[in-house]
Design a protein around this nucleic acid. Structure first.
Lengths: 336, 336
DNA sequence: CGAAAGTGTTGGAACGTTCCAACAAATCGT
DNA sequence: ACGATTTGTTGGAACGTTCCAACACTTTCG
């Protein structure tokens, strides 16, 4: 390890020019003569010079960095969204600081605070758990975008999400079109997204004049939760022939509950999940699902943020993306 | 958005003290009188003061930040490792910059370069794809640790990984103890980890005097690859009764190949995977696997890095962690 | 041919912190 | 009662960059 990292000054000395000129050359200005440029590059590579981002960000008061806060890395759908975000960010020549909230509002707040200290120029919140108040405060301080939840009317805050109510409706529509009537719903617990999906389920059931068949069973956005909810549905004695499960991970659990009871999917029970995580498509799962365009949500979310960075006063925008049905092997016709 | 972020100077002016004192107070020094401290805190909260990390890192020449480079966020095992790393890093009061290499060596290099510009104090490389040369160069520049690959004898570079050869051996041992003899191996492609697992497979087969039964089929660390390799094994006509698949994701694919041929797991074919990703334990997959202690690998890798940051000249260390067999429903006795 | 308009280049002042030597005031020990 | 210590506090010099006004030299052109 060198005793001291070389600075722009060392490069200037070695190349026999002023530090200002080195600064210009490093940033590729065209006002530098060919010879100077050559000498500078030569000196820089010889010394192993690397610009100091902290100094740079202090001097020009721009960090060229965005903060990304993700609820929880373990849910694979977030990884897919992040990939989208990162791609867009790279295109704009920005850099990313990615942190997780570990599904814990306190940690999440702390991490956001840290990011702001690093002078990030914008914040991407993927599936946050923050109270409206703090969200308000953050958006007042720094351009921000919320991904996968709809936030409306908060100044300085954009959002992008799929329409969960609509998605849940087409899930039920699909099952109805296969002839199912006794369609149960395994919920995703107490959170905004889960509730919207439940709402869509109820709406669609009512639309098809199946309101009296409506049946919700408590679940969660986990394997365990899906198993539990599905088990309750199957053991209810109400003769459900199909399950709409709140998300794909839970649908995997539901699959197991069905198998445990010696029943077959889709011959005896049809299952539809939600999210469109890559995993649900794996051959041995092959779960019919309502897919969100995850990568696109990431890229469009990021570009929404860049728009706001460009004009911080623009009115808050919300983008709704359409989820779409992907039919796989977990759903089939209702046996008469 | 405030026209200008308040600085330490503004706080000092409002509190009626010097900026030096504010600096001391903000860092919780005990050489500040109670009254001054109160006045400073009052002023800081009133102004909404937030320290500028760039300035701080410039002034005291420490960024309190670590860089984490992960091969690819989409493989869930990395997410589990990262969780471990983040926990440890938080404990030390450090911050994390997480970037992905998108499974692309060029991007990976670029991201590492960026992290070094940010003056990260250490680098965690999770499953990198870099040539030995660049690794060497990086380690010479900045303390670093490699996770999930064994690197030995590179100055300034520690590593932690599970013993893939040993793990593969116990996978085969398990199958042999169930009475299997014709045990095929679906490989993980051309990379160090995959080759070590293949080596362990061959060793164990030889130990059990089954060298003549050895059969490797080309696969990859993906669903697709596992399906392909397993299909080749099953269609080979060699009557394999068990498959040792290079990792869990590929094992999921293998499961499908078996099902497609109308065979049953584990009645007709036993399958053992590798990695111990949470997903493999989901009820409807329930894959027997060789589990790595993923979170522990993360935390211990991080603490290895902190040791090196504390003493950059210590000799390179490698920690080997033991993988362990988790028996689930994808493996069973060989039918006579 | 002399003023105007480029072309390269430069030193110094920011940027917002931390560190350090210096100091004033209060407390101490003898 | 007086130097020595302790307790708070301070201004200024770093840290490594970017920006700006100013420069010395061409070149252009009316």
């Amino acid at each position: 390890m060198a005793p001291n990292r070389p600075t722009i000054k060392d490069v200037a000395a070695l190349a026999g020019v002023s530090k200002s000129l080195v600064s210009l050359a490093m940033r590729g200005s065209d006002r530098v003569s060919a010879e100077s440029r050559a000498a500078i590059i030569e000196a820089a590579t010889q010394l192993g010079y690397r610009p100091n981002a902290a100094a740079r960000s202090l001097a020009d008061r721009r960090s060229h960095t965005l903060g990304v806060v993700v609820l929880d890395l373990l849910n694979p759908i977030y990884a897919e969204i992040i990939d989208g975000v990162q791609g867009e960010v790279r295109q704009h020549g920005y850099h990313t600081m990615l942190v997780t909230g570990n599904d814990n509002p306190v940690i999440e707040q702390g991490e956001v605070e840290k990011l702001l200290e690093f002078q990030v120029e914008g914040l991407v919140l993927i599936g946050h758990r923050m109270p409206a108040g703090s969200l308000d405060a953050i958006a007042g301080d720094c351009p921000a975008v919320v991904i996968s939840r709809a936030e409306r009317g908060i100044a300085g805050l954009d959002s992008i999400s799929n329409d969960d109510v609509f998605g849940a409706r087409i899930a039920v529509d699909h099952l109805v079109s296969l002839g199912h009537q006794s369609i149960a719903h395994v919920t995703g617990g107490i959170n905004e997204v889960a509730m919207l999906r439940t709402l869509g389920y109820e709406q669609s059931m009512a639309n098809h004049r199946l309101a009296d068949q409506t049946a919700c069973y408590d679940g969660a956005f986990t394997d365990e939760g899906g198993y539990r909810g599905a088990a309750a549905a199957l053991d209810s004695g109400r003769g459900h022939t199909a399950l709409f499960v709140a998300n794909d991970i839970a649908a995997v659990g539901a699959l197991a509950a069905v198998a445990d009871r010696g029943l077959d999917v889709p011959a005896d029970i049809s299952i539809v999940g939600y999210d469109g995580m890559a995993l649900a498509g794996l051959r041995s799962l092959s779960i019919t699902t309502i897919a969100q365009p995850l990568a696109r949500i990431g890229t469009e979310g990021a570009s929404l943020l860049f728009l706001r960075i460009g004009d911080p006063t623009r009115p808050p925008a919300h983008i709704g993306v359409e989820p779409r049905l992907i039919i796989r092997n977990s759903s089939g016709p209702c046996r008469p």
